[in-house]
Structures are given as C-alpha cells and as structure tokens.
C-alpha cells in the first residue's frame, strides 16, 4: 500500500545554502497491507526524515512516495485532510506531543471538530470511550486530565487511540517507545502489533534492534540516508550480512551475553556533502579499494537485500 521509489531528501545548509546535506539518499521500499516494517538506524540516519515525508510534514526532494497508487506530493493542501484520514503518526516524545496548557483529551476534540463535525457529542463520546478501551485504558481514569498528570505510556496510548478514531490504513510510529519506562514499553509495543489484526500497516521507526525484531516482519537498516540491508526480519537477524548490521547487532546490550568486540569510535565531525563510495567506508573494518565506489543494493537470497561489495563479491564466486 505504501511505496517509496528512489526517494531523496536534500537540505541546503550553511550561509546562503551553499552546502547540501543529504538526509535521505535514493531510498526505495514498500509496505503491504497489514504489515509492520521496521526502519532501523542511528540518529542522523534519516529514519525520522522518511517518516516525516510519508506524513507530508516535509517535502520530498527527489523520487516519489505513493499510497494505494496515489502520489502524495501531488495532493493539494485542501485534500490533505482526506489523506490524514488514512495516514497518521505518533511521535517519540509523549510530552511534546501535547499542548501543555490544555487537557490531554483535547486531541480527541480536535479530531471531532476537524473530521467528524456532524457526529453528535454523545455518539462521539462513546466512540472515544471505545477507542480508549481498545488501547487498554480506562476512560474514567484518563479523561479530563492534563498531560503532566498522565504517564508517558498513557499519553502514547492516547495518541494511538486518536489514530484509531480515524480508521487509518497506515500508522507511522516514530520511536514511540524510546522515552517510555521499561515496564510499560512492552505493552505499547504489543498494542502496536495488535493493530495488525485490524489490517493496519505500521512503519515502525526505531534505533533498537531487539524491538524491531520483536514486532516486525520486515526490516530496513539505514545509515547516513542509505539503505544498507533490507529484507525479512528473520533473515537479517539470523544472518546479518552487512558489516554495519553485524556491528549493530553485536552492540545491543543483552541479558544473556556480554559484549564481545570493541566499537570503533567516531572521531570525525558532522558529515556533509555526498560521499562517492560506500557510506560506511570510514568505519568499516573490511573496507577495501572497491568500496570507494558506491555499492548497488542486490538480492542475496529471497527477500534479503544487501548493499556491500564484500557480500556481492563473495556471491559471484
């Protein structure tokens, strides 16, 4: 249902926009109905930028994003409301998602005013109560309170309930549990996974591989705006091929084993401009001459794609 085709995002930075920052480079992937896809990357990998482009919060520099065959950059401002009936987002910081001086349930009133002005108050209240129960909240306990009186987990559930009121098709979940406490994290994650049974697609943006592995069928590994590896979550986690993916998985703190290898420390300042070769060249322990040329992403086995010369060379042999 969602399809990204060679999407790029370029920011002009510096005085008079003299320099270019490539936040997203030539990214293509798709999400099917009822599928959870994880977009995994460090900060600065462009994962949130992709989410924002899908939500039409920022423009697309190059390429196209289509939903059910419709190019989203061609939607007129007037029709954007119809778009948001289908696609909604939940963001990382639950406290920043609420206007601190209003009650938290104002987000439901706004949906009522903007999307369903004809529904009478009584029916609407029932609808809100149902949505809240769907996300595991007791309406009596949470309605009529200010954001600071609710916990981070409750606030994120509120936002999911808000999206459910709209009968959406796609939810962009941008790091929605990274600021929550461990004890409630998993419940919000389960809730997200349950949405699948309603036929919802989820773009799950995260930096935490264990979470991505827990809920998604497909995963995309992003580094400095480029896709390095993508495919079924199972294949990527059981058999990570790209050196970057291998490093990420080895760095995840686990409760069953301790860290083995050392991480190579980054001693460079912010990255600008377009690297001509592989984006991971500077940090890659296996980098060789060929890596100065940009590696194309190739399919190494069914539903498992990697952009790495070392992998593609060994495939040829």
């Amino acid at each position: 249902m969602l399809e990204l085709d060679h999407v790029s995002k370029i920011y002009k930075v510096g005085t008079f926009g003299g320099k270019e920052l490539h936040a997203v480079r030539d990214v293509s992937f798709s999400i099917q109905d009822g599928e959870v896809v994880s977009l995994i990357g460090e900060s600065g990998s462009g994962k949130s930028t992709i989410g924002k482009m899908v939500l039409r919060l920022i423009s697309i520099s190059d390429g196209s994003i289509t939903i059910d065959g419709e190019d989203i950059s061609k939607i007129e401002t007037k029709e954007s409301k119809e778009y948001y009936r289908k696609v909604q987002g939940v963001f990382q910081d639950p406290y920043s998602s609420y206007n601190p001086i209003f009650k938290a349930d104002r987000i439901f009133h706004i949906i009522h005013d903007e999307f369903y002005p004809d529904v009478d108050k009584h029916t609407w209240d029932d609808k809100v109560n149902n949505a809240l129960q769907d996300v595991g909240l007791n309406p009596e306990h949470v309605l009529g309170k200010f954001p600071h009186q609710l916990s981070g987990g409750q606030l994120q559930r509120f936002l999911i309930a808000r999206a459910l009121l709209l009968d959406i098709k796609l939810l962009v979940a941008d790091e929605i549990i990274s600021m929550l406490d461990a004890s409630v994290r998993i419940d919000v994650l389960n809730l997200l996974a349950d949405l699948k049974t309603r036929g919802l697609s989820v773009l799950f943006i995260t930096h935490d591989l264990s979470l991505a592995n827990y809920i998604s069928e497909s995963a995309i590994i992003l580094y400095r705006g480029c896709i390095l590896e993508r495919g079924s979550t199972e294949k990527i986690f059981d058999n990570p091929l790209h050196p970057y993916t291998q490093m990420l998985i080895s760095a995840v703190p686990r409760l069953d084993q301790k860290w083995a290898t050392k991480v190579k420390l980054d001693s460079e300042a912010a990255h600008l401009g377009v690297p001509t070769g592989c984006v991971y060249y500077d940090r890659c322990p296996y980098a060789f001459e060929k890596c100065k040329v940009h590696p194309e992403i190739i399919e190494v086995s069914t539903d498992h794609h990697v952009a790495c010369w070392k992998v593609s060379d060994s495939q040829e042999k």
């Binding site: 461990a182 004890s183 998993i186 994650l189 389960n190 264990s210 592995n213 827990y214 809920i215 986690f237």
Partner: peptide, 21 residues
C-alpha cells in the same frame, strides 16, 4: 517483573507475548 518485561533479541511477538507491569 521488570526483567521479565525486557524484550530479548530473538524473541518475536508472533511467538511469545511479553508482558509489562
């Protein structure tokens, strides 16, 4: 309960539902 709620690598939602507190 806190330790039991942590998702471990390799655990999938489709196979095992973890519980929060």
């Amino acid at each position: 309960l806190l330790i039991a709620s942590l998702p471990k690598i390799g655990v999938k939602y489709s196979e095992k539902h973890l519980k929060g507190i």
